[in-house]
Each structure stands twice: as structure tokens, then as C-alpha cells.
Nucleic acid binder design. Structure first.
Lengths: 154, 154
DNA sequence: CTGCGTGCAAAACTTTTGCACCAGT
DNA sequence: ACTGGTGCAAAAGTTTTGCACGCAG
């Protein structure tokens, strides 16, 4: 895949916006982080290591920009923080995200899964209710393999 | 179905908690309202019509209580407000809620649907990933029948 | 140069908490 | 009476906004 940073820079130029170090740093933070699902504050802390002068307001403003450009997805785990993750869709596939999350009630980890069954469900909704589905978000709460085993022992 | 208010009062007594007018008023507000999915502030406004002296803090405290008793469900539409709706489950069926919402991007209405297909999906997740699903929440964004028709015209 | 973007601080907003008073049991 | 509940106001916490300065184009 083409580097996400390049795509970002391209989009900025297209729209007559400026490519600043802060904006690139913030995208990088989201890209590098393996555990994903970062809050604004977490992104701020990461970027500050490299660029201590950055302001939290800039993080919020850039996050909003990135979401508008469909480069990142908003995600709400219900813990009071809004979280963000890099979108994993292809170039032009701007619609239909893949927000399928398994949230472990034991360790708090968030896994992702690919649900092709959702398409069937959407077809059903379209037919029975006339509701035209554009995007969806699915959250499953439960226990991951390890935590389920741990609980089984007790 | 047995009156939800009676069930609430019963549960309160069981736990040695008090049945106050405020608590009953708040449950009533959630029960009466047809459009459901109310924010704390909205509940506050509704109850204030009947009991102008109520405080917003009491609404928050009661909401928390009702959620703990599984009488209402938390719901996050991603618009910055936490919302609440009366649970539609049977007496003892405390696990596995039915948070299946269709959110219309046109008119903003929120519809509900019953998704039996989700069970299939859960079985698949259990098998392939060893993740034990306890509860789930599904949100579909799109256009309801009316709004889809409206958009078709243009 | 021109104007968009940034940092800082203050504001805005939702939700929580401390405390004195009040009401249900 | 006792104890938990309420209202008010202040606090806490996240996100937004106004403004002067600085940097990208």
C-alpha cells in the first residue's frame, strides 16, 4: 500500500491546506502505535516525545481533520474517551468502514475481526425495513481466549 | 408485562434503598417518552415540568442506579452525549441486551431492529478466535425509508 | 508577503462529588 | 430517630475556541 503519510500530504495539497510537521507527526503516532485505539491525550503524549512544544489543541484539530479526510476512524468504547484508529480501507473505498471490535472485559484489550456476515444482515434490513445501510459499527463485549481460560480455572 | 415502575420499586426495597418521588419520576420520563434515546439533560428537562425542584445531579445518580439494576441501557450514538433507553428484555434475561440501532443520517431518527443473525456471527467468533461473547452492540448508519426516497428524487 | 496553523489560556460542556439539609422507612 | 437521598455549587475532565504570533506556500 502507498504510504499513508504521502496520501495525507497529497490530500492536504489538493485542498490548499498546509503540510506542517505537527500534522505529519500526529499521523505518524497513529501509524506507528501497535495497540491502536488511542485517545487524544495518548496521541498528545506520544507526539510530545518527539516534539515537546506541540499543543493539545493542535492534536484535537488535526484529529478532526484526519477524520474528515477519512484517514482515521472515530471509535467509542464507552469508557468516556473518544478514540481513534487508522482506517484500514483501500484508497477509494471511503464508505463502509470495518469497525468490528471485540472488547475484552478481562484485560481490556481490543481485538478486530472481519465480519462478512454483516453483509447478509444488512441485506435483510434493507429488504424488511427499507433502511439503506451506509456504514456500521459492531462491538462485542466478552472474554478473549486467555481471559476466558483464566476464568474457567477459578 | 408487569409495570416497570413496580419492578423498580420492588428492586429498591429488596436492596434497602428508598422509593423517592424523584426516582419514580425519572423512570416515568424514560417510559413515557416515545422517541426514547434520551440524554441526561433531556430527562432532566422532562422531569422538571412535573417537579421543577429536581436537580440535574439526581438525574445522573438515578440513571446510574437504573443502569446497575438493568432497567435501562446505556447507548452512545457518537454525538458526544450518553443516552439511555428502557431495557426491553424479560424479567431475568439480564445478559445479552439487544442494542441494535439503525441511525438515520437524514432525519436523525433512531430505529431498532431484532437481529437473530448476530447469534450466528457470535458462534463464528467463538469458534475461530476463542473469544467468548457476553454482550454486543450494533449500530447501522444509513437512510430510513422516507429519507432514502427523498434522496432518490434529487 | 499572505494567510493558514499553532500554542497558550480561557471557555464550554458533560458528568461527578462534597456537604448540609430533607424525606422515606 | 436513622440513614440514605436530594439540591446546590463547586470540581473534575474532555474538547473547543479566541487571539496573537510564527511558519508554510
Amino acid at each position: 500500500m502507498p504510504d499513508k503519510k504521502d496520501r495525507f500530504k497529497m490530500l492536504l495539497k489538493e485542498k490548499g491546506l498546509k503540510v506542517t510537521t505537527q500534522r505529519v507527526d500526529i499521523l505518524e503516532a497513529l501509524e506507528i502505535r501497535p495497540d491502536k485505539h488511542l485517545t487524544a491525550e495518548e496521541i498528545y503524549e506520544i507526539v510530545k516525545e518527539k516534539n515537546p512544544d506541540i499543543g493539545l489543541a493542535t492534536v484535537y484539530r488535526t484529529i478532526q481533520l484526519l477524520a474528515e479526510l477519512n484517514l482515521i476512524d472515530k471509535l467509542n468504547l464507552g469508557d468516556g474517551y473518544v478514540r481513534y484508529e487508522i482506517g484500514n480501507m483501500d484508497e477509494e473505498q471511503k464508505t463502509h468502514h470495518h469497525h468490528h471490535h471485540l472488547i475484552c472485559l478481562g484485560c481490556g484489550n481490543v481485538l478486530t475481526f472481519q465480519g462478512d456476515l454483516l453483509d447478509t444482515l444488512e441485506g435483510q434490513i434493507q429488504k424488511t425495513m427499507g433502511f439503506e445501510v451506509v456504514d456500521h459499527e459492531v462491538k462485542m463485549y466478552g472474554y478473549c481466549k486467555d481471559c476466558a481460560a483464566e476464568r474457567g480455572k477459578e
